[in-house]
Write a protein that binds this DNA or RNA. Sequence first.
RNA 1: GCCCGGAUGGUGAAAUCGGUAGACACUAGGGACUUAAAAUCCCUUGGCCCUCUGGCCGUGCGGGUUCGAGUCCCGCUCCGGGCACCA
Length: 855
Amino acid sequence: MQEKYVPADVEAAAQAYWRETRAFEVRPDPSRPKYYCLSMFPYPSGKLHMGHVRNYTIGDVLARWHRMRGYNVLQPMGWDAFGLPAENAAIQNRVPPARWTYDNIAYMKKQLQSLGFAIDWSRELATCRPDYYKWNQWLFLRMLERGIAYKKTQIVNWDPVDQTVLANEQVIDGRGWRTGALVEKREIPGYYLAITKYAEELLAELEKLPGWPERVKLMQANWIGKSQGVRFAFPYTLSGKEEKLWVYTTRADTIMGITFVAVAAEHPLAAFAASRDARIAAFVEECKRGKVCEADLATMEKKGVPTGIFVRHPLTQEPIEVWVANYVLMGYGEGAVMAVPAHDERDFAFAQKHGLPIKQVIQVPGKTFSPEAWQDWYADKENGVCINSGKYDGLSHREAVEAIAADLAALGLGEKTTQYRLRDWGISRQRYWGCPIPIIHCPSCGDVPVPDEQLPVVLPEDCVPDGTGNPLLLREDFLRCDCPRCGASARRETDTMDTFVDSSWYYARYAVEAATREKNERMVDEGTAYWMPVDQYIGGIEHAILHLLYSRFWSKVMRDLGLVAYDEPFANLLTQGMVLNHIFSRRSSKGGIEYFAPDEVAIERDPDGRIVGARLLRDGAPVEYGGIGTMSKSKKNGVDPQALIEKYGADTARFFIIFASPPEQTLEWSDTGVEGAFRFLRRLWAFAHQLRTTQPSGESSGLRREIHRLLAQANHDLAKTQLNTVASACMKMLNALEKAPQDAHAREGFSILLRLLSPICPHITHVLWRALDYGEDILAAPWPEADAQALVQDEIELVLQINGKLRGSLRISAQATREEIEAAALACEPARKYLEGRAVKKIVIVPNRLINLVV
RNA sequence: GCCCGGAUGGUGAAAUCGGUAGACACUAGGGACUUAAAAUCCCUUGGCCCUCUGGCCGUGCGGGUUCGAGUCCCGCUCCGGGCACCA
């Protein structure tokens, strides 16, 4: 073995060995437990960034650890290859998205390989390949047959200059990113997937996922947003006709406090009012400005106009005016709400602004109501009782809801219902670089599904979008086709699918057998049945809701079609914290935003070290500081790990990112400390070199006890995926080995250290394992377990507290009884000093830890 | 605005069930080795006080529970993630 640690040589040797032995290509094997370890596949944006390195290193540590513990481990990799950035790149460089994407994949694959991940590359897939997206189309057609996929109108962001639909991300301060034009809302048709049909199951089965973080389950539950309430109608007469205005509320107990009704701008009643009143029409028009996004709607100033239309209170017959308000969402409930200003904060703000009456109908004992200012107790469901509500006075929230629902039902004007916040999933995108929706538009037959035998509908790969709309609209060779039903000439649908469709089932596809992939006559197979569900899924917390919920939904649809047997795709989930970096930007002349990498700017700080501004190094002019945020290509704040790998090697990069912080925690990027990781590996190498050439002498149980103590701790930490302290344990082991005399236990200790470290730093440990003749392949070595015998101690140290304050410590036999400990504590020097003869009232003993004397 | 997290030295962090706060590292300072540099090794490194033994304070802020709180409870502040067309 070489005297000096040269990472490039070590890593080349280890990687060559894995390649030659096909170390990570796996097949189903019923004789061993399986472990499907999956990291979220990357979008091929160009280069890896530190978030990827973190994600895949965490996954690789878990994969290698399980493999050494005897599991049959599958760890695949692929590419989430459709998406907007490829079109942006095309606009900028006039390169077809396909070429840009494939080039990026090739480069990023090399980067991943240089990091030495234990990936079965024979299963690699890219979602932009027809052999993959064929099955998106096939499953979409099955959903269409079952009424799970359907067509309706959707509201999109419209750029009136480019005549194109914009993503929320492309709308900056209400304007199109390229044109600077004011964005409008526009209604267009699109396909939806009825995820709401699965709302109840998606919610209920969260409880069957003990391996998921509580916070993710909580976020999903809130997103699904199940509520029990009452759907009821306000009758009204319009142009001589009896009509009903339906609303939904969870606070039927406040029904006697209604002082107005508010409808969304898109509500039919608003449209009717607008048709006869220019002021209302202008307001409805105003509501169309701005982008389609909940955050924008929620932070908007609450505005509204009265319609002059009155409905009747269903219980009192009192006339109630209908308002059009911008805070009512058409997509939730009925697009209309009863307004009870006294007990709903938004209604309160709206009523105050427009001088509408505020009528208190709930009282919490001991509180005083004032219409002047909102107080949180006004919305209290737990402690309130009805007042000013006639026969309902004195009833609690629950009692009043029951009574009022019953009365409304008796009148035929309402019923108790369950409502979900979750909306159906709109999958149509008016974009080129995505999976074509397999529909043909026939002038006589209408929308006709593409027959299965014509799948896949292949996307032409040579288009170059220019930002002015979907280039497929110009491709006659793609557009023209024959109607499968009547044979007449027809046109293909040009909308493509949301990229979340691609990522909703890729994990099941990785698992199929090679033969199935080659023939491509089945979406999934027995390989899927063997490997699924994923035993450990690892990915960013930013996917806590959408991607994970869509994947759960898609799995359930596949199950109901008899394709798979599992209910849930991911048994255990590790949500990796984001890797953050500073964001710098500047307005472009057109009103768009241009981002700059942190190394392109000079940062200015105030005396407290806070960043107050920055200047672009190129031109010296100021740029705006946008705080810190997740590393992304679009914000140009990603850090390419390449330089790190080239300078220190993959093992150092891997060790450093694992050591830097626990996996679930957000990490503000800084490479301070990389040197320390590298120094550790160099010391490891030097120690191995020296261990090879020295004869052991003497016997010291101290070292063995220390190594096994650290091992027990590290195994405990591994089980809860707290990997940073496993890295620390490795450092502590090396410190202990270096300090101890080279006794008979040094070789055992070092073999434990190598195995414990190998999932994190697989290259150096592979090479040292062989160099020290521990065996042929460290991957085949058994995972080390702590020897309980080695941990036994005769004497322990107890902390002495007096009134909870640390006052000293005492050494005592590990077998000492409670009485012996108490006697020893009372007799020791610090106790006598601090007690000063005062009587001890109480003695608290925490076994093996401390004794606290309370006086 | 709504939902979900986070905050511990100059820095990344540790503290397993409410029980010794700051393990392990980084940075900085001092020293050894060296012609020199690199590398390596040793020492110091939360703040304040003290001649020493040692003492007091300290886990974002303000309260509370407890023999004992970084950890539990209540109320805030700031930062991050998500909000359905970024992925």
